[in-house]
Design a protein around this nucleic acid. Structure first.
Length: 490
RNA sequence: GCGGAAAUAGCUCAUCUGGUAGAGCGACAGCUUCCCAAGCUGUAGGUGGCGGGUUCGAGUCCCGUUUUCCGCUCCA
């Protein structure tokens, strides 16, 4: 990463805070690591991104419907999905090599070694002790076990171990107001992904909305993960928001749908005006256990190319797992005629293509793409810098600023009238303080695409100046046409 | 997690070798102003990250701690 890019990232973070887009969480208490709050303009921008995604998914595709599942889900959900097993392992670090190990892996490796040396009884004893201690979450005992067996790090060769720590990637909380003797009785997790809320509702949605495969279910919502490293601003947060769509298809057609959605999703990004060269696909070579094909859409952030969205061909893994754990059939009966057999396709568990985009990452993408420090030369030859957020019109927090040139001679009254006319239709901002140039710059800094200035000529011929953010050009437009002109651009 | 650096007003910074904190910008109020910020006047805002120590006296020296940034590490 170059110094210039580094500075640019810092500048964007500072700008986001100073202009009410993103604040560190609980800042007056020194903040909460990897948690952020969205301010007045940030919350508008975020909402606009979410709405834009939602509309493009559900309104523009008649075979996609939305849901809003709860963050709390039955704990078995996460056993079925594999999260319980994969997201909470006791770990230990070797202080010399800085290498981190899963405790069970470390002990099992040692047990293997014992087995190879023909010390079967010791092997079994070790594994049994390990299982007992793991079941009790006895980390002190486990560390003692590692030390007693003189297990060393394969890299440093030393046994200079840290204490054992549990890495809970999922947040746990207690369900029910009454405490139980066994705390495990009441455990629920804050969902680490929104997808499972879609999968467990697959049949509810299919039946009630009378959907036929292929169809999709879209959802936006918060998800929670304990990230090990908390850095990189809102790119990596413990509480974040996903926008996911699971598309259910007939087995055997997943390939073409995967390709379809891969292209569709890239088009969605490009449609916002971002140059193609800022995007690239990253096809996964190593696939997760459930995946048949997977890729990321990466955007060139100031910190390099990073994943914004993932498109995964998940096979029937999720629905099959839920069928297995819930003992409820997750099948769909397909009445369409299979040309090969002349009969309906019949019952099957659909395959799934997932598109999953991080709303907060998309937000950061928009900020990164929009932020610009521009040097402009004035009429007298002097130079000046302008910080402008070139946010796409449809995403901008404010669409229009309405500014009387001076706050007298009846100009504020005319401006207020326009404000009243426009504000039911799109978000407007009114200001009569300070010099007009200063007000323009303030709007540039928060990405308002248009400013209308009411001046004395308005009183004579009913026209105002409409000033465009990116080019700073202005033209005279009849006051009566402003509302419709802006509406046409949204 | 390890190593390094930093922390003074909303922002950028100053306060020489310890003597009880200041500027510019910004914000707010008013004046002025007929189209691209930095005209005028006024106002607000700091227990100098937090805790402890040395000292007659600490923003300044020492220790601890927290947070942030950088590098490495880790990452479903």
């Amino acid at each position: 990463m170059s110094i210039q890019q580094e500075n640019r990232f810092q500048a964007i973070i500072a700008h986001a805070k100073e202009y009410g887009f993103v604040f560190p969480s609980s800042e007056i208490y020194d903040g909460l690591s990897a948690v952020y709050d969205y301010g007045p303009y940030g919350s508008e921008l975020k909402k606009n991104i979410r709405d834009h995604w939602w509309k493009s998914m559900t309104q523009l595709n008649d075979n996609i419907v939305g849901i809003d599942a709860a963050i709390f889900m039955h704990p078995t959900t996460w056993k079925a999905s594999g999260h319980v097993d994969n997201f909470s392992d006791p770990m230990i670090d070797n202080r010399d090599s800085k290498k981190r190990y899963r405790v069970d892996h470390l002990l099992e490796a040692h047990a293997d070694k014992l087995a190879h040396e023909g010390r079967k009884e010791e092997e079994f004893a070790l594994l049994k002790s390990m299982d007992d201690l793991l079941a009790k979450d006895d980390f002190t005992g486990l560390k003692q076990l590692i030390e007693d067996n003189k297990i060393t790090c394969a890299i440093s060769g030393t046994s200079n171990w840290t204490d054992i720590r549990q890495f809970n990637l999922m947040f746990k909380t207690e369900f029910g107001a009454i405490a139980s003797d066994n705390p495990n009785d009441n455990v629920v997790y804050l969902r680490p992904e929104t997808a499972q809320g879609i999968f467990v509702n697959f049949l509810n949605v299919q039946k009630t909305a009378r959907m036929k495969v292929p169809f999709g279910i879209a959802q936006t919502g918060k998800a929670f993960r304990n990230e090990i490293v908390a850095r990189q601003f809102i790119f990596r947060m413990r509480e974040f928001e996903q926008m996911e769509m699971q598309f259910f298809v007939r087995p055997g057609t997943e390939r073409e749908w995967y390709k379809h959605w891969k292209q569709q999703r890239l088009n969605w990004h490009l449609d916002l005006g971002t140059p193609t060269e800022k995007y690239r696909f990253h096809d996964h070579v190593k696939l997760a256990h459930y995946a048949k094909e997977a890729c990321d859409i990466e955007y060139e952030f100031p910190i390099g190319f990073k994943e914004v969205e993932g498109i995964h061909s998940r096979s029937d893994f999720d629905l099959s797992q839920h069928q297995l754990y819930s003992k409820k059939k997750q099948q769909y009966f397909d009445n369409d005629i299979d040309e090969k057999t002349g009969k309906p396709y019949g019952n099957y568990i659909p395959y799934v293509i997932e598109t999953s985009i991080g709303l907060d990452r998309m937000f950061l993408l928009v900020l990164s793409q929009a932020y610009d420090e521009e040097t402009i030369t004035k009429d007298d030859g002097a130079t000046d810098t302008r910080v402008v957020m070139r946010i796409p019109v449809k995403l901008a927090p404010n669409k229009l600023a309405i500014l009387p040139l001076v706050k007298k001679d009846g100009l504020p009254e005319l401006a207020r009238k326009l404000m009243d006319e426009c504000k039911p239709h799109f978000r407007c901002f009114y200001e009569e303080k300070d010099a007009i140039g200063k007000r323009y710059r303030r709007q540039d800094a928060i990405g308002t695409p248009f400013c209308v200035t009411v001046d004395h000529q308005t009183k004579e011929d009913g026209t105002v100046t409409l000033r465009e953010r990116d080019s700073m050009t202005q033209k005279r437009v009849p006051l009566s046409e402003i509302k419709n002109q802006i509406l046409n651009l949204l």
